[in-house]
Design a protein around this nucleic acid. Structure first.
Ligand code: FES
Ligand code: FES
Lengths: 146, 146
DNA sequence: TTAATAAAAGACAAAAAGATCCTTTAGTGT
DNA sequence: ACACTAAAGGATCTTTTTGTCTTTTATTAA
């Protein structure tokens, strides 16, 4: 579905936010290991995200990555558009220059609603909402293990 | 959404089928021009489709591409999986090795239904059904022009 | 103030996708 | 039979994506 960079981005940021909930600030090596991504590539991606203002970081001993708690939650669509463009959220499924309901391609009737759902998912979910889900899932597992 | 090769494939085959309806067998140059795709690349793609048995061709003067009318209609999912794999139809939106409803990623609940819709689209629509839509649309336009 | 640590920056490399071109082969129509 | 046409095959090239590595800069803890 998404390209590699986007997948690493999503998994990485959700992992960071999850650790932030636990009052930790993970570094590149730990993040890459935990989300099963190439370490150097992960570092480069996180670097860019910091430059773009989506993420904050601290250098040196005890440093790592974290989200500024004062900022609003980060919608997936914002993140993904910044990473790979909006190929998943707009554009014609048939590859026409642009999707025009008044001059639709033969896929339009069936495809446009699916694309709308993707948009709803992208604006409805945020890195924070996903991390919360994982956190709750972890708690549930711990309870069941007792 | 889909990659370039898949888009050219869809547009190309729908164009061929549309011309077949009109008892014509278009060649690579015409097809590429009409679907707005790179001529040589289009030729290479059509070649592969013939090799894979999705399409038939005739060489030499008056030659071109056509669909064997005896064969069943070609579902988009079959075609797309043969072209770019099934990244659009299966797999986890979060990039996990595989999508497992019993151990879901935080995107699963929202993403899996969208993926299911894509599957329904892919198996429900065929090159022939799309070409028929375009054909009907053309007829309607001609009538309106009167 | 120094040694250790960890992110930032950017050069470099490999692989995949996208695209072009040339030569060969098969078939058509005259 | 012959000239022409159009697909088949394959080599080559470019761009984008993915990934690695080295050097620099900032920070912290001792
Ligand atoms: S025109 Fe193709 S999806 Fe809308
Ligand atoms: S587990 Fe990720 S989409 Fe199903």
């Amino acid at each position: 579905m998404f390209n590699k960079e986007t997948e690493y981005t999503l998994r990485g940021l959700v992992y960071i936010q999850l650790q932030n909930i636990k009052n930790r600030r993970p570094g590149t090596a730990e993040i890459a290991r935990e989300i099963d991504a190439p370490p150097f590539y992960t570092a480069k991606i996180l670097q860019r995200l910091v430059r773009q203002g989506f993420l904050a970081s601290i250098k040196g001993k005890g440093g790592g990555f974290y989200f500024d708690g004062d900022k609003p939650d980060l919608p997936l669509i914002t993140l993904i558009q910044a990473t790979e463009g909006d190929r998943s959220f707009s554009g014609c499924g048939f590859g026409l220059k642009n999707c025009d309901a008044n001059n639709p391609c033969p896929l339009h009737d069936k495809y446009a609603p699916i694309r709308d759902s993707m948009n709803k998912l992208g604006s409805g979910e945020t890195i924070q909402s996903l991390a919360k889900k994982v956190y709750k899932q972890e708690l549930k597992k711990l309870k069941n293990a007792k």
